[in-house]
Simulated assay, not measured.
Amino acid sequence: MALVTIVIRDVADRFHGFLSSVMLEVATNVFVSPRMNQRARERIWSVMSEWHRHEPRGSVVMVWRDLNAVGGIGIANLGEPSRELIEADGMWLVRRRAAAPNIAL
């Protein structure tokens, strides 16, 4: 069992309610569980994935300890995250996504 963290941004209210029922909200829209097993983590992600498929707005990012993944961190996301993760030499680098240019007509 490992620490799991989920961050939500601009999603439907039911995501917040659901996560509040299974995890601790340590800051606004930041949820943690200190000892969540893989089966529970996958079930929670399955529910949120299904909801996001039907109402694709906002984003959800989940991170957990995964010794077989790059940098020992498992990462999953739904929607468009505000950051882009790039694998380089066995670790993750983070880059802000470029904003779309404003074009005046």
Rank of each mutant, 00 (worst) to 15 (best):
R39S: 13
I44D: 09
D10F: 12
F31E: 00
L3V: 06
V7Y: 02
E42T: 11
N37I: 11
V30S: 13
D13W: 06
L19M: 00
A40R: 07
V7M: 03
R41P: 06
T28I: 14
L24T: 09
G17K: 10
F15W: 03
T28Y: 14
F31V: 09
I8V: 14
L19N: 00
R9M: 01
A40G: 03
R43A: 13
F15S: 04
F18D: 01
V7C: 03
R41A: 10
V4E: 05
D13H: 07
A27D: 11
R43Q: 14
F15H: 08
M48D: 07
V11A: 03
V26H: 00
F31S: 03
V26E: 05
S20T: 04
M36G: 07
R41V: 05
A12C: 13
L3W: 06
R43Y: 03
V7D: 00
M36K: 10
P34C: 10
L19K: 03
F31Q: 02
R9T: 08
V47A: 09
G17S: 10
M23A: 14
I44Q: 07
S21F: 02
M48C: 12
R35L: 12
V7Q: 03
H16R: 15
V11S: 00
E42P: 04
L24C: 04
I6G: 04
A40F: 04
I8W: 01
R39K: 13
L24H: 08
V4F: 03
H16P: 12
F18N: 03
V32R: 07
L24Q: 07
V30M: 08
G17N: 09
V7E: 00
I44L: 08
